[in-house]
Design a binder for these strands. Structure first.
Length: 746
DNA sequence: GGGTTGCCCGTTTTT
DNA sequence: CGGGCAACCC
């Protein structure tokens, strides 16, 4: 598993590459545009690659072509992706085409490439070898510490927001000294920039970097050391970039710098699939490619090999509502009789109705021959997965929720990794703080304070400070034991494999016992996860090697096993394809998401629309869009309107599958709700013979019996409610009818 | 130092 | 409605 991310260090300087005379056979499999994208090796090239047009094929074939033609040697080619998954896939496909040479190509995520460069010259940017890459939780803790230390009201100005601001600066390639007054955020009375300074300083003290640094620091390095930059510029004859629409400004600067000597930069992407602006991606990179790179050639891949005409027609019409596009017209490469099935659009009464009907349709489709693994439910927000999980469990259908909680972000895994980090490196203060009192050993804030002071006066790490600090006997005993434990682990790691070391340390420290004693429902899962970690560790020769890997990998369990239905967010679906795709929750407020509209206005709306486009274009044969007229969000029933995206779908490509006779359905629904209400109150439901369809259930029965406060009448108890009109028995003035909005819950 | 209660707030997520 | 966190109490 680690081998995917290793590089063969074959950068041996030798003579020029040897050029070949004949075109390789594999070019014959390409269509004319793909052929052009592959063989136009010189100069800047932008490949606008629509959904399903064979972008990965172009990228891998292009590298294979460059190598086969002898235009460069493997280590002179740099290919960057966003995700480990994409890198892995590309590497595997390349290996099939060119054999072991693939291992010498610089192929990896931006971050992985960044680490590789930084590991070679750590001192130039103030790092020591073996620096730590921080996870989000460590970053946030650090920011919080800094802000609290500066006396900031953490509730008013949250560390998460602060960290976000820092990240946006880093996304733009701005070190603290480069942020100008105008770019400083108004956040926290303009103190944000100051915190950024301190944050970077603290990172260096801890010999740590965050994800943003993996790009920012190489850029800094190139600035300070033009000789090193020149070395890389001369090395990389050809640079390729995947998912260019998702790059941020720092990544753009990185690519621009490195491609300067040869100018052979090939970016592949689709502006219509840019869905990550909220984390710093800059659509301008792709929109302005031909302006920033002079003489750039733009090649459009518009032949779609994936979807039917109806799916493509619906998707194209939808995305045509966006302005500021580079413009592509997707054409079906393989025509189907009648254009395939129409996109089905259904309205349902509520979220659970929607979930149930979708699962039923999935069963029908499965019976008709589509394997579960060729179907997917794509949701806008992760809370939507819950409703589907409930139904899937009830129906006994194997499924997998992708994304959500990542393996390496789980508490128990971060803890276990922290133990390992500390064993390898006793100056890792963050790891120390994480595990010193886990399981509880009676080491609290006070002891940490003492250690921090001792560490400062003797300029050592917290772990080393234990030897110097003045401690109460009981604490002394515990900490000496802890020191011993870690040192013993260190000793063992010289002779044992990482899995054995981890097992020993997690047992001896009492960490495993802590979870075994834990009665909560999650504890079994946590123990399982740690066992899974032992498995992963078994693949590594040393702890060091494992930690390098773990820092940049967030998921091991994204792969589905056999016959499983996948449920995931639209964001996570980018780059994937399925026979049948289900797109629930197309409702105003949810999709487009209200927050996207509030925060980014029209831009936000367009990004939401691109997300819808991404979702639709994942489908090969069938797409199902649906919305519910009532949905529980934040514990409250909402009655959203169908999404405007539903209206934007062209009539000739869709079929309205909403069950007819809405009136009847309306009646049934109201009865359903009434029954649900009765059940909630613990009553049984007798018969709805007497029920007229006009019955409207009271909106918020849960206010009954609640204590409330009224400005003029004082405290009281709700005794009856009719919509917003409540009858309250006030302690002082007796029963009164008042409007809910004049009351405060107590 | 550890457990409990009460309050706030609520996207998307890779590395 | 529920999770996460901070203030509060033992």
């Amino acid at each position: 598993m680690s081998d995917i991310f290793d590089f063969d260090e074959a950068d041996v300087a030798s003579a020029e590459p040897v050029k070949a005379k004949h075109e390789p056979e594999f070019l014959k499999a390409l269509n004319p545009e793909q052929y052009q994208a592959v063989t136009t090796t010189e100069g800047p090239v932008l490949v606008l690659s629509g959904a399903g047009t064979g972008k990965t094929r172009v990228l891998t074939t292009r590298i294979a072509y460059i190598l086969a033609m002898g235009l460069a040697r493997p280590w002179e080619v740099l290919a960057v992706t966003f995700t480990n998954k994409a890198a892995k896939e590309m590497k595997e496909r390349l290996e099939k085409m060119v054999g072991p040479d693939a291992r010498s190509v610089w192929l990896g995520t931006f971050h992985r490439i960044g680490v590789r460069i930084l590991s070679k010259y750590p001192e130039c940017v103030g790092l020591k070898p073996n620096f730590v890459v921080l996870g989000t939780d460590d970053q946030e803790r650090l920011v919080k510490q800094i802000m609290q230390g500066a006396g900031v009201d953490i509730k008013r100005y949250t560390p998460a927001t602060m960290l976000d601001i820092i990240q946006r600066w880093k996304d733009r390639g701005l070190a603290p000294s480069a942020v100008t007054g105008a770019q400083n955020s108004g956040f926290c009375e303009g103190r944000a920039l100051g915190f950024y300074h301190v944050y970077q300083q603290r990172l260096r003290e801890l010999n740590a970097v965050d994800f943003g640094d993996l790009l920012l620091l190489p850029l800094e390095l190139f600035k300070i050391r033009p000789d090193i930059l020149a070395g890389y510029q001369n090395q990389f004859r050809y640079i390729l970039v995947d998912e260019y629409q998702d790059t941020n400004i720092a990544q753009y600067m990185f690519l621009r710098l490195l491609s300067k000597a040869y100018g052979n930069l090939c970016c592949v992407g689709d502006d219509d699939q840019s869905i990550y602006s909220w984390r710093g991606a800059e659509v301008e990179n792709i929109l302005g490619f031909d302006k920033t790179f002079t003489d750039a050639l733009t090649i459009r891949l518009e032949r779609n090999y994936r979807s039917t005409e109806h799916i493509l027609g619906a998707a194209s019409a939808l995305i045509s509502n966006n302005s500021g596009r580079l413009g592509k017209t997707l054409k079906v490469a393989n025509e189907t009789a009648g254009g395939g099935e129409l996109v089905k659009v259904s309205g349902y009464w509520n979220g659970s109705d929607e979930a149930e009907k979708i699962i039923q349709e999935i069963e029908v489709q499965q019976a008709r021959g589509t394997p579960l693994s060729d179907m997917a439910i794509l949701v806008r927000a992760s809370f939507q997965t819950r409703e589907f999980e409930e139904v899937l469990l009830r129906y006994g259908i194997p499924y997998k929720v992708i994304g959500g909680f990542k393996f390496y972000e789980r508490e128990e895994i971060r803890d276990a990794v922290a133990y390992l980090r500390l064993i390898l490196n006793q100056t890792d203060d963050l790891a120390f703080l994480r595990v010193v009192n886990k399981p509880r050993r009676g080491i609290g804030d006070k002891v940490i304070e003492v250690l921090t002071t001792a560490a400062k006066t003797h300029s050592v790490s917290l772990f080393e400070a234990i030897a110097w600090a003045e401690l109460k006997p009981a604490v002394r005993k515990t900490l000496d034991w802890f020191v011993n434990l870690i040192k013993e682990g260190k000793e063992l790691s010289k002779s044992m494999n990482p899995a054995q070391v981890a097992n020993k340390i997690l047992e001896d420290s009492g960490y495993m016992t802590m979870w075994r004693m834990d009665k909560s429902i999650e504890s079994d899962g946590r123990i399982e996860n740690i066992k899974e970690l032992y498995n992963v560790l078994g693949d590594f020769a040393s702890l060091n090697e494992f930690l390098d890997y773990a820092a940049l990998v967030t998921d091991t369990d994204d792969k589905t096993e056999g016959e499983q239905l996948v449920v995931m967010t639209l964001h996570a679906s980018e780059g994937l394809e399925f026979d049948n795709v289900f797109l629930p929750g197309w409702e105003e407020g949810l999709f487009p998401h209200q927050k996207a509209l509030d925060e980014a206005g029209d831009e936000g709306l367009e990004e939401e629309r691109r997300l819808a486009y991404v979702g639709l274009t994942r489908a090969k044969k069938r797409a199902y869009i649906s919305y519910a007229s009532s949905r529980k969000m934040y514990g409250q029933w909402q009655n959203p309107m169908p999404s405007r995206f539903v209206d934007e779908l062209p009539a000739d490509h869709i079929m309205d599958c909403t069950e007819n006779a809405m009136g009847r359905r309306g009646a049934y629904d109201r009865i359903d709700r009434y029954v649900a209400d009765l059940e909630r109150k613990g009553k049984t439901f007798a018969s709805f013979d007497n029920w007229t369809p006009n019955y409207t259930p009271p909106k918020k029965t849960k206010r009954l019996g609640k204590r409330v406060f009224h400005d003029s009448f004082g405290y009281g108890t709700v005794i009856r409610e009719e919509g917003d009109r409540l009858e309250v028995h006030f302690d002082d003035v007796g029963p009164k009818k008042v409007l809910a909005r004049f009351l405060e819950a107590v």
